[in-house]
Design a protein around this nucleic acid. Structure first.
Lengths: 222, 222
DNA sequence: TTAATATTCTAACAATCGTTAGAATATAGG
DNA sequence: CCTATATTCTAACGATTGTTAGAATATTAA
């Protein structure tokens, strides 16, 4: 027979398992990357800039905490979020950190280096403008992430290819670039490049995960 | 000049600080207790069943992560949540754990020992019933927590005093008891006692924190 | 001032975690 | 079958964390 205290302890210890999974920067980054869609281990390792072995260990920990699931396809093992709720939890944690930690606020403010990089835009307003063709919404993530899920009316040009594919964009139309979210630097780089080349470009702070938690619609290529 | 990777790393490391603060069962329990209102160190230690020294260390960690704030009043130092958002984060984490971890689900199902302990009730429905006097909403937490915030129309009888104060309750009216939340066992004990004594009592799963995150109104004594 | 109370600080130990390297496993293709 | 590739497992290390005990600090009351 367990005492009341033992029962209470065991309940909090269960939640601790989730907390521990969220207590590592690389695990958080892996979650963020997986919010963009499923990926094999090596690709995750590359995206997070750590060794495959370490990636595997972190993925194991996240899987043990039931935050991830895995499937094998040929030689690769693809990991994915166990549930959209996991993305919601990540966004909640990041948002809480942004509003609570002044050090994070200053770190993020320091990222706004170029004066022509405007403030993040309103979601619904952007949607209607994109629909009417008044702005071009540009997804600068890798193509596979675009295919999994992207903003409605968005066009895909990965950051790595942007320099070569500038001709595809009309010069006079305003461009709104987005990437994985507030912690991802790809859209910032894209905007800097575009503005240097004479385009009128601004950055959208939200990524697909934030977009989804706000209840806004998404599209996908299948 | 920092590289893109160094910037990205530092952003995730900031969020890690929050994650780490949530990666200890006792710190989680302290947060839950503080969701009920501010308390001095010794009372927190007692409520969490740990030593004052250890409590102080955990509180220090939580304060460093900006989840708590403190104020001195005479000889005591009162801790409180830095923001209601912290309570929201705690509820989000607990909810995620409840839905993701089967071990937690079974642990919680095991708590429903008495068949006369009914399923948790709907918030708005309860509110209107309480307003019309069809049910008695009973807050069995310590009085100071009741004073800080309680459900509308709720009556306070702390669990410790319930046995002596049974006469205050009408026998024929249905009683809905609540405490700190799903992880708190006080309401369960109260319901078990009431039913044994011939009352018709059920337990409300939500506590004040859950109530608030659902956007429902609260009352307080000042 | 001194004594009592509440809390924090410091130091130390054991347990846990992140990280790395080397061995092991599972699959695909020849 | 063998070989190459992708991933995990095992073992080990150093760093970090939870916990405890003893000293130090701050406040109140006498």
């Amino acid at each position: 027979m367990k005492t009341t205290r033992q029962i209470t302890d065991s309940l909090y210890e269960q939640v601790e398992r989730l907390g521990k999974a969220l207590a590592s920067p690389k695990r958080l980054e892996l979650i963020e990357i997986l919010c963009q869609g499923e990926k094999p281990v090596e690709q995750l390792a590359q995206a997070a800039s750590i060794t495959v072995k370490l990636t595997s260990a972190h993925l194991k920990a996240l899987k043990a905490a039931r935050l991830l699931e895995a499937r094998r396809e040929g030689r690769n093992i693809y990991y994915r979020l166990a549930d959209i709720q996991v993305a919601t939890l990540w966004v909640a944690l990041r948002t809480a950190a942004e509003s609570r930690l002044t050090s994070l606020q200053t770190a993020m403010r320091a990222l706004v280096t170029h004066p022509n990089e405007l403030a993040p835009m309103n979601g619904k307003k952007l949607l209607s403008q994109a629909k009417r063709g008044e702005v071009i919404v540009l997804d600068v993530r890798p193509v596979d992430e675009y295919r999994t899920a992207h903003l409605p009316h968005a066009r895909s040009i990965p950051l790595a290819e942007l320099k070569q594919r500038l001709k595809e964009l009309p010069v006079n139309c305003k461009v709104v670039a987005y990437c994985r979210g507030p912690f991802c630097l790809m859209a910032r780089e894209a905007v800097a490049l575009l503005n240097k080349k004479g385009f009128k470009a601004v950055r959208l702070e939200q990524g697909v995960a934030e977009w989804r938690t706000q209840g806004l619609p998404l599209a996908s290529d299948n």
